[in-house]
Amino acid sequence: MVRPNAPFAKALPRNAYPGARWVQPVVYVDIAYGGRTGDGMLRHPSFKSAAGIQ
C-alpha cells in the first residue's frame, strides 16, 4: 500500500510535506469543500460518503 511518491497528477513541491508517507488509495470517498486556498489546498473539506473500494 505504501508508494514512493504522491498519488496526484500535479507534482507537489519537494518540501511541502516533509516526512509524509504516501499510500495507494484503496477506499474512495465523496467529499465536499468550500474552495481552495491560494496554494491549492482544500478549504473546509468534509466527508460525504464512501464511493467505492478498489
Rank of each mutant, 00 (worst) to 15 (best):
V29R: 02
G38D: 11
I31T: 09
V26H: 13
L42M: 15
K48F: 01
I53K: 12
F8C: 08
M41N: 13
V27L: 12
I53L: 13
P18C: 04
K10C: 02
P25G: 06
G40T: 01
D30I: 08
F8D: 04
G34N: 11
G40F: 05
P45S: 05
A32R: 14
S49D: 12
G40I: 03
V23P: 01
N15H: 12
Y28W: 15
Y17K: 08
D39S: 15
K10H: 12
R3V: 15
R3C: 09
N5V: 14
F8Q: 03
S46T: 14
D30L: 09
R43K: 15
P4N: 08
R14D: 12
A20R: 10
R21Y: 01
Y28D: 07
T37I: 04
V26K: 13
L12H: 03
S49R: 15
K10G: 01
Q24H: 11
D30V: 11
G35S: 04
G19V: 05
Q24Y: 09
R43Q: 13
M41K: 14
M1G: 11
V27E: 10
G52I: 00
K10Q: 13
G35K: 06
R3I: 15
Y28H: 10
Y33R: 09
D39N: 15
N5M: 11
R14M: 09
A6Q: 15
G40Y: 05
A16W: 07
A32T: 13
V29L: 05
P13G: 06
I31C: 06
W22M: 04
D39F: 06
A9W: 03
H44S: 14
P7Q: 04
G34V: 01
R43T: 07
K10D: 10
M41I: 05
R14V: 11
V27F: 08
A51E: 02
S46W: 14
K48S: 10
I53N: 07
Q54F: 08
A16H: 05
R14W: 07
W22A: 01
P25K: 04
F8R: 02
V2W: 06
Q54N: 12
A9F: 07
G35F: 00
R14A: 14
Y33I: 02
Y28C: 07
W22E: 01
A6V: 10
M1V: 11
V2L: 12
R21K: 15
D39P: 02
D30H: 09
G52E: 01
P18N: 07
G52C: 04
L12R: 07
V23R: 13
G34T: 10
R14S: 11
M1C: 10
A20T: 01
K48W: 00
A9H: 09
L12V: 01
M41E: 14
I53A: 10
S46E: 12
V23N: 08
M41T: 14
V27P: 00
A16I: 04
N15K: 13
P13W: 04
G40M: 05
Y28T: 10
F8G: 05
G38M: 07
M1L: 11
R36I: 04
P7I: 02
T37C: 05
Q54C: 08
F47S: 02
G40H: 06
P18A: 05
F47A: 02
P7L: 02
A6R: 07
P7R: 02
A50N: 00
K48C: 09
L42K: 05
N5L: 13
A6L: 00
V26I: 13
L42S: 03
A11M: 07
G52T: 01
G38I: 05
Y17E: 06
F8A: 04
K10T: 12
P18Q: 08
